[in-house]
């Protein structure tokens, strides 16, 4: 067959477009993956431990055992994502060889490289990366990330950090839209953002790739809040399977994400969900334990 192209930027970015308006859920077993699919998740993130357990158990958090990821790939028909350590391109090669649909170069795992992120352009498989401000988002896109998510503070069940990051990115996009060429040059210095991408943001009025929210989502109202603030979709990490009734909560978060502008639906789906994950108040998370500070 002539003229067939794979691994193009359009295909990488395009898969993220197909996930918009949806919920991506962390799962650690094929059974959990099936519950997520049943609830209406658009994709699952295959992990060894959810962020809350990474936080509680400590130690070095690495890519999951490929055997677990493979079992999850077989269990569901929706796309499967997997996490690798910051800068650990060999872990990414493993997941790519396995046929994973999307790779998350994630601060939830222990960073492998303290200076460089993965050169994501060299992979045919698309990448999603975390960001807590516009400069960080645009550096990741410059390295080849085809999708961005806020970092929030993973495994806390506390939405405050995700909100801070979403708000900041929106403020910075508004500033870019009102900036002259000379002002953009100053922003490249202040934010560490590539000039070409700042120009693209100015033209589009948004990030040039899909932007999901992540980190601390625990309730349907959390999901609705982030969607109303302009996010394209939601990642739920520990929030589903650390709650008392995962299927009911997962379904409720999916419906709240779809009908985020309808308070009546939000009311309906918020009733009788059982206990949400317990969660952490931010002042109890010491600075060195904050995963959002990982990433350069």
């Amino acid at each position: 067959m002539e003229d067939v192209n794979r691994g193009t930027w359009r295909l990488k970015k395009g898969l993220a477009d197909m996930l918009k308006g949806g919920v991506i859920m962390d799962v650690t077993t094929p059974e959990q993956a099936k519950i997520a699919e049943e609830a209406g998740a658009v994709a699952v993130m295959a992990l060894e431990r959810v962020p809350a357990d990474v936080r509680a158990q400590g130690g070095v958090a690495r890519m999951a055992d490929p055997a677990i990821v493979e079992q999850i790939c077989v269990a569901v028909t929706i796309p499967v994502m997997g996490k690798v350590r910051l800068g650990h391109f060999a872990e990414a090669q493993v997941l790519a060889a396995l046929g994973i649909d999307y790779i998350d170069e994630s601060e939830v795992l222990t960073p492998a490289d303290e200076r460089y992120h993965i050169d994501k352009h060299t992979f045919a498989v698309p990448f999603v990366c975390g960001a807590k401000d516009l400069g960080e988002a645009l550096r990741r896109i410059a390295e080849g990330a085809a999708m961005i998510r806020t970092k929030g503070e993973p495994g806390t069940g506390n939405i405050v950090e995700a909100i801070r990051h979403v708000r900041l990115v929106s403020e910075q996009i508004r500033q870019v839209r009102n900036s002259s060429d000379a002002e953009l040059v100053v922003l490249t210095r202040d934010w560490g953002a590539p000039l070409e991408l700042l120009r693209e943001v100015r033209e589009l009025g948004r990030l040039p790739v899909v932007n999901f929210a992540a980190g601390g989502v625990a309730t349907p109202a959390d999901a609705s809040l982030l969607m109303q603030l302009g996010c394209d979709g939601i990642f739920v990490g520990s929030g589903v399977f650390k709650s008392s009734d995962p299927l009911a909560r997962a379904k409720a978060i999916v419906r709240a994400t779809t009908h985020y502008q309808d308070p009546q639906v939000l009311l309906e789906v918020s009733r009788n969900l059982g206990e949400a994950m317990r969660g952490l108040e931010m002042s109890t998370v010491a600075a060195p334990d904050r995963m959002q500070e990982r990433g350069w």
Binding site: M1, D3, V4, N5, R6, G7, T8, R10, L11, G14, L15, C73, T77, P79, A96, G99, I100, D101, Y102, A124, V125, P126
Partner: peptide
């Protein structure tokens, strides 16, 4: 569904 394969098998032509 997914008969062409996983994401790495996605293509344009």
């Amino acid at each position: 569904r997914n008969a062409y394969g996983r994401q790495v098998d996605s293509f344009e032509t």
